[in-house]
Amino acid sequence: MTAKSAAHTIATFARRHRLRPMEALPWVLAVAAYFVFPDYLALGAQILATLLFGLSADLVLGYAGIVTLGHAAFYGVGAYTAGYLAAHGVGSPIIGLIAAMVAAGAVGFISGLIILRTQGLSILMLTLVVCVMLQEAANKMTSITGGADGLQGMEVQPVLGMFRFDMYGHTAYWYALGVLFLGWAVTRTIVHSSFGRSLTGIRENVARMNAIGTPVFFRLVTIYTISAMLAGAAGALIAETTQLVALNVLSVDLSGTILVMIILGGVGRLYGAFIGVPLYMIAQDRFSTIDPTYWYFWIGLLLVLVVAFARGGILGMADAVLRRFKRSP
């Protein structure tokens, strides 16, 4: 082995975390969408908030390999926290956002301490149970949550005291985009760090991680908490921009939907959510207009096609195509 190729190998490995030009694309598109589709900003803000939720789900599912059917628990806790504060005189969206992250993170930490001791199907069941329990609790505690009627009387103040939420969604869009950008920056830093790589190791082979001295349980609880905080932020964004919180934010249905979205895009790839979430939500918006009765069928068909023909989602398929192009000169 020559010294030159050694240096080359190490440099290739070390270059992996650097920003590539392609990574600017989502942000360019998001800014462009603001000007191109001024009538769809409300939907746009929802997509951006859901994207943050998708990023948080990808951290646990795609990177750490924790199969969860209850990720909406944290999203919902975040949404109710921000909603409750706004309905009780604390209308600052930033404070609501931070409070939502703290509350969701606490729920993630405590439930993680119990759930993450188990593996496989048990995890799946326990995450689902946490989500169902929280939804049922929210349903019963009508004095706090408004129960089945939803949370009433939110009054969200202008962002930073300057930008009032308007009915066209201008402020909502930029606010959601800003928070998403911060969430992305944090997520990206984590997945390229030694901690993030060790999560991938846990996903690939727990037995070996134990054998190299990794405190696996502690790592999993840490990422579960961080992910819960990001999901909570996403929930707060939805609550603040729509000024509405109802029981569906805590539903198992939503927990499943977010998985479908990131699986469509490709899990464990950071950008899977950026493809899957907008695709799903735009398709949902279009299909439900074209075919209001059976729109879910078309979403289902899309998922079946992706799972059958594009393991690794749309990004995985794109990777495979690119590789083929590179090989054949």
């Binding site: 490995f13 992996r16 030694s194 790589r197 991680m209 840490t222």
Partner: peptide, 27 residues
């Protein structure tokens, strides 16, 4: 994961840096 990464994970654990979540592993 790559062969290099397999070994890197073990060394990172030994060195006690594997819990760090801001510095890129490649650095």
């Amino acid at each position: 994961l790559s062969v290099l990464e397999n070994v890197t994970l073990a060394i990172s654990e030994r060195e006690g840096v594997a819990g760090n979540f801001w510095r890129p592993a490649g650095k």
